[in-house]
Design a binder for these strands. Structure first.
Lengths: 204, 204
DNA sequence: TTAGTTATGTACTGATTGGTACGAAACTAG
DNA sequence: CTAGTTTCGTACCAATCAGTACATAACTAA
């Protein structure tokens, strides 16, 4: 019943174009003109469809976390805590060094950029990171309960260790470090990962 | 013989004020007005004394690396490779979580910010990081030659591992993570550090 | 005092920022 | 064809950006 002139662009495709720009340039470093040029729409269309720059960033962040960044959630499904850790690390490397996407991580850029204007992006990113962190701690807690991690380790410390590494990987990748070098970093880091006390994870 | 009106401010003190602002807000997030307000000088004085925003950032970067960030160079003087690693990690934690300074690291912020305007800052920071990285690799190379690291380890991989962690620490600190948690991260990371093959470092 | 030199403060520049007003265009329902 | 609705495109807004012109103030050397 509504009718009206049909929009001449695909919103999801436009979000992908916007993601590419925010990912490469950060929130503060990206202007409305950068966005509308990449999205191939004009300014009023952008505002009508997505609200404003801040809300657009929120939509883009969603798309990032359910798209290129979805490995982090999927990593939690790995059978052992060590596999979770490995998937997180190698996933972060793939994400941040992919040849067809910008180097680095949208979320890490978001936490770092923080002039007066970048504040809202920072808020959004930090909130999502906290959700992800909580899920990781919960997963490692379960691993310890299942005997997959030693009883005397602290799952939240291990989670923090992993996130510190994935963040560092993003910074290194943005600085030009290659995937091969980062894989050897991940390999080294995994040597610090605790092994279950006596038996493997119980089959029951 | 020169004469002329004496300047009414202390350039080094002004640089320290500028450092505080760049450190907290990044290069792109900082405006000339932010800077001149903090430095308590007016715009023409700033341009006369420091050139422009980009050159000012370079001067500030010098001051950062020879001041708060000097721990990284000093860490190389530690007697063993493990001590170098520990000093780098704990120094990074102190730097990025200091109660009287902004959270995070000026250099990490510099690599991450990169709109069109932030490009020069990015260039400068990446160049300095490369110098520091080379010095660290050289130090670990020497450690291996001295038998302080096993012969089959790769010093450049270990250096990259350390830098990835210090970068990650900076990101975590900027995101609000506390020093205590980060110290446990460092402790975990050091478990991955290789130990010399048979004897300790030779006394000769 | 006078000439030369350097710094300071005000007031400005053109360009760009995020965000909008408004009329024309393109559709649906009747 | 007409009325209602939604989008599109141009052209604009005030605010702010980095950077500067210029007159005046404060100093040294003679």
């Amino acid at each position: 019943m509504p009718g009206g002139r049909p929009r001449a662009f695909d919103p999801d495709a436009a979000l992908d174009r916007a993601l590419e720009v925010f990912w490469r340039q950060g929130y503060e470093g990206t202007t409305l003109s950068d966005l509308t040029t990449a999205m191939e729409i004009n300014r009023p269309s952008m505002y009508a469809a997505f609200g404003n720059k801040e809300e657009l960033f929120g939509r883009v962040l969603d798309r990032y976390l359910t798209g290129p960044g979805a490995f982090a959630e999927r990593a939690l499904d790995a059978p052992t805590a060590r596999d979770v850790a490995a998937r997180m690390l190698y996933g972060a490397i793939r994400l941040t060094t992919g040849p067809d996407t910008p180097r680095g991580c949208l979320c890490v850029r978001g936490t770092q950029a923080c002039g007066e204007e970048g504040r809202p992006a920072r808020r959004q990113v930090i909130a999502r990171r906290a959700v992800g962190a909580a899920a990781l701690v919960e997963r490692l807690d379960r691993a310890r309960a299942e005997g997959d991690l030693p009883a005397d380790c602290d799952p939240s410390d291990l989670a923090r260790f992993l996130m510190t590494l994935t963040d560092g990987i993003a910074v290194q990748a943005a600085g030009g470090c290659g995937a091969d070098e980062l894989r050897r970093v991940a390999e080294t880091a995994l040597r610090a990962w605790p092994t279950p006390a006596s038996p493997g994870p119980p089959a029951s």
